[in-house]
Design a binder for these strands. Structure first.
Length: 200
DNA sequence: AGGTAGATGTTCT
DNA sequence: GAACATCTACCTA
């Protein structure tokens, strides 16, 4: 039977970022009612050469050193806005990059923002997610359990989400660390997971 | 299918 | 000045 409100999220944002990154797969993320199911994430941590927090606190990464469960939004390549979920206790400097979403809510709105109809490419990549959800720098530091954000847990009645793991994308340091997570078989990923070795 | 280049701005050395 | 947690368009097959 339908519920009037959602149960509390079974997510501990103080957990290590790779744990949170995996747990977020299948969770629905909405911004002003627009978004869908998270199908791809990446974990970053303080002692991680690929992380923005590797060198310690700076003005840009301040939100990553703040309380968990808030947003860290940064500008990528001067063009895109990318959204992270801050993890660990305040001061630690860990987070999860939201890399891809399966569009379910406010699809027309996202298509208009992206100037693109193809559902598969609507939110398939961190920059695309940012554009589709209307993320910009003003969201940096905002709590994810309060408007305009909504996080909806995985329905316990549904079969468990199958998660694949692989190396992170688009980084040059620690490129072999398997901290990319995605829903197995999803067609909304930014890139497929290569479970089978490429043919020679 | 896969490679390359260019856009565009902020951050940090 | 270099690097960058990216995306798109435009090549070549």
């Amino acid at each position: 039977m339908p519920r009037a409100s959602h149960p509390p999220l079974d997510l501990d944002f103080d957990a290590p970022s790779e744990v949170v990154a995996r747990a977020l797969i299948g969770v629905t993320l909405l911004v002003d009612g627009v978004g869908g199911r998270i199908v791809e994430t990446e974990a970053y941590d303080r002692d991680d050469p690929a992380s923005h927090t590797f060198g310690g606190p700076t003005p840009r990464n301040a939100a990553m050193f703040g309380p968990s469960g808030r947003a860290y939004v940064y500008r990528s390549y001067g063009i895109h806005w990318c959204l992270n979920v801050v993890c660990r206790e305040a001061g630690h400097g860990a987070g999860v990059l939201i890399r891809a979403i399966e569009p379910t809510m406010g699809i027309a709105r996202m298509q208009a923002r992206r100037g693109l109809d193809d559902l598969r490419l609507l939110c398939a990549g961190p920059g695309r997610v940012g554009q589709a959800l209307g993320i910009d720098g003003s969201f940096n530091g905002k709590a994810l359990d309060a408007p305009p954000f909504v996080l909806i847990p995985i329905d316990g009645e549904q079969p468990a989400v199958q998660v694949e793991v692989g190396p992170r994308i688009g980084i040059s340091k620690a490129a072999d660390v398997p901290w990319r997570f995605g829903e197995k078989g999803s067609r909304f990923l930014s890139k497929p997971f290569r479970t089978v070795p490429r043919a020679v």
